[in-house]
Design a protein around this nucleic acid. Structure first.
Length: 300
DNA sequence: TATGGCGGCAGCTATCAATA
DNA sequence: TATTGATAGCTGCCGCCATA
């Protein structure tokens, strides 16, 4: 499976400290990130703007100052909601086993395992309306700062903040109105996962809608409706976005010819590739490569 | 009876290959 | 590089079926 598209096996941090903090940047179609999932647990912190995030089929609208908890394995996507204001989102992605100890203790059995096995459900949306929610959001902000500034022993500080976060979450569970269970539409989500995985593995090849629809035994017409309802993009639009993003990476990190890159990511027609690339990235592939090379030049 | 999931069909749009 | 025609894809609508 391709690591970059679905993030399935993407390494966040490293094996000794498996966590990463990322600033999420919207693309030209105002998408923060397309539908994907990963084994790691994730928190999103909305610093500026307004965005809509989908966890499975459940929609959450986040304003500046809000946060979102995304359990391991949850399929999710994010889109800018208010195009008039810039959107700044931080994603804190970590392996829950970061909080495990060397020995199997009460922390593991009572908290970490239930979170990993998803028998302990935490609410997804945090809004700074109550003291405890404010405290949890403040912990997230601290984690972002520690990760960016990397003070002495920042790993310890971040780990301590994560423990604080989950302790605060669990301590206030009684007061939390429970979200609709993520498993409500688990059947649809599992089918969508199969489709996304198929696309992820097949995008360099010629893909026809009937092939993708057959993965989940659906008619072509109904599959298009199903896909659009779940992902808010048509299947071909999604496949082309994946291809263009891969092409952009190849343009930045290789010296291959534009036509070769187009073929490599699944476009059979170079002129159509250039047309789509221009629509997505607002510049031609060769201009994109020049711009990326300029960005990567060491500052004088 | 209402609802949701699904397939089939028709008409429109997007995509792509061939050609000049 | 632009144009054109063929093919594939998308979507609205309708009807069928299973289930509550």
């Amino acid at each position: 499976m391709n690591k970059d598209i679905l993030h399935e096996n993407r390494v966040h941090g490293n094996i000794t400290f498996p966590m990463g903090v990322y600033q999420v940047i919207e693309d030209e179609s105002h998408t923060l990130f397309d539908y994907h999932w990963h084994e790691e647990t994730e928190f999103l912190y909305m610093q500026e703007g307004t965005a809509v995030f989908w966890l499975g089929t459940i929609k959450h609208e986040l304003q500046a100052g809000d946060a979102l908890f995304i359990p391991s394995g949850t399929i999710h996507a994010g889109f800018v909601a208010d195009l008039s204001t810039p959107c700044l989102v931080y994603a804190i992605v970590f392996d829950l086993n970061l909080l495990s100890g060397r020995t199997y203790d009460v922390i593991q059995s009572k908290y970490i395992d239930p979170l990993l096995e998803q028998t302990l459900f935490l609410p997804s949306l945090l809004k700074p309306h109550t003291f405890w929610e404010n405290s949890l959001i403040a912990e997230l902000v601290s984690i972002v700062e520690f990760f960016e500034k990397k003070p002495v022993a920042y790993e310890l500080l971040i780990k301590a903040k994560l423990y604080n976060l989950f302790a605060g979450f669990i301590a206030n569970l009684q007061e939390i109105p429970q979200d609709q269970p993520i498993t409500t539409n688990i059947y649809k989500i599992e089918r969508l996962k199969k489709v996304l995985q198929f696309i992820d593995e097949s995008y360099p090849l010629r893909i026809q809608i009937k092939d993708v629809a057959s993965v989940i035994a659906m008619s072509e017409g109904h599959f298009c409706r199903f896909f659009k309802a779940m992902v808010r993009k048509t299947p071909m639009d999604y496949i082309n976005t994946v291809r263009i993003n891969q092409a952009a990476k190849l343009l930045s990190h290789s010296d291959k010819k534009v036509i070769d890159i187009a073929m490599e990511v699944g476009f059979e027609n170079p002129s159509y590739f250039i047309k789509l690339f221009k629509w997505h990235k607002k510049c031609t592939p060769s201009d994109y490569r020049k711009l990326e090379k300029q960005k990567n030049l060491p500052a004088l």
